[in-house]
């Protein structure tokens, strides 16, 4: 067993990893609550946005231009998907809506591999100005980017919770995610609210993609399927509770990194998100709450 002083840095790195999961996990839940769609293309959209930013920056564009394009790409693409495929799928089961976004994931993934090939051993990365500063904690450096992502996670947790609950647009989104037709009968401009929800979520996806490309890697495969691990946190939050998702993401990150220095368990540490999610899901289902319902109220 590692000593306490050896473990300390893993606590810090675990929280940073948790911040990564939180960013996309919270993003998934926010989207789900606002649109009623589990947007599994979240990672792919962010990855493609970040790759576009990378190409622009490599071609000589200023950094901020690349970042804005990345975020806008996420927003516009997601808006486009939502506007085209939202209505025909509106009355379908959440499961069908989620699987349809897997279709988008496949399309984006194929496009990314075509356009940003690795046939020459290319390794890409994107750095943000916030990488350079930071402070030292438990013998290791914490960059402002990590702080930023954690902060964004917290801001989302607090902000979107309040937004969805207290603003009229937020209320309209929740109502719409729950039942589009009834919401429409109540006089809510469904199309516009939907558009706002999709666009906002896409922007979030682009923003997350940019940060994750910096924190994890600028790699289409890694970022696209990071969603699977992040989904674990969202599932623990039952796709509903943003604070629980945020907390679960931190716990998953901590567990994962704390297992790293423990020789006997280190090979299995990558199971942590899946095992924790499975335990949580089963525990909740045993206590017979919403989990066994197929349609959630947002």
């Amino acid at each position: 067993m590692p000593s306490w002083s050896e473990l300390q840095p893993f606590i810090v790195s675990g929280l940073a990893l948790g911040g990564v999961y939180a960013l996309s996990g919270v993003g998934l839940v926010v989207l789900y609550r606002a649109t009623g769609v589990l947007y599994l293309a979240f990672g792919a959209v962010g990855a493609m946005g970040a790759l576009i930013a990378y190409s622009l920056i490599s071609a000589g564009a200023p950094g901020w231009a690349g970042w804005i394009v990345c975020v806008l790409f996420g927003g516009v693409l997601t808006l486009g998907y939502g506007m085209i495929f939202g209505p025909p799928l509106a009355r379908r089961d959440p499961l069908v809506k989620a699987v349809a976004t897997l279709g988008l994931t496949l399309v984006l993934f194929g496009v990314m591999d075509l356009l940003w090939t690795s046939s020459g051993g290319q390794a890409r990365s994107i750095t943000l100005p916030t990488d350079n500063g930071g402070f030292s904690l438990a013998q290791i450096q914490v960059t402002w980017t990590q702080v930023l992502s954690l902060g964004l996670g917290i801001a989302l947790t607090v902000g979107t919770g309040a937004f969805l609950r207290y603003t009229s647009l937020g209320t309209a989104m929740r109502a719409m995610a729950n039942d589009r037709e009834i919401t429409a009968t109540l006089g809510v401009p469904v199309r516009r609210v939907e558009a706002a929800a999709w666009f906002g979520c896409g922007v979030l996806g682009g923003l997350a993609g940019l940060l994750l490309a910096d924190l994890v890697a600028l790699d289409a495969t890694t970022l696209t399927f990071l969603v699977i691990s992040s989904l674990a946190a969202a599932l623990i939050g039952q796709l509903r509770s943003i604070p629980v998702t945020f907390g679960a993401a931190l716990v998953i990150g901590l567990v994962h990194d704390l297992l790293t220095p423990i020789t006997q368990l280190t090979d299995y540490r990558d199971m942590s998100p899946f095992v924790l999610a499975a335990i949580a899901l089963l525990w909740v289902s045993r206590h017979g709450t919403v989990m066994s319902r197929s349609r959630e109220e947002a």
Binding site: P94, V99, L235, F274, A277, L282, R295
Partner: peptide, 19 residues
């Protein structure tokens, strides 16, 4: 997992296969 339905069944199978 069979206690779960719909979306949750799909997602837990994804989690289990990840493990």
């Amino acid at each position: 997992a069979l206690r779960l339905r719909g979306l949750y069944f799909a997602l837990i199978t994804l989690m289990l296969s990840g493990a």
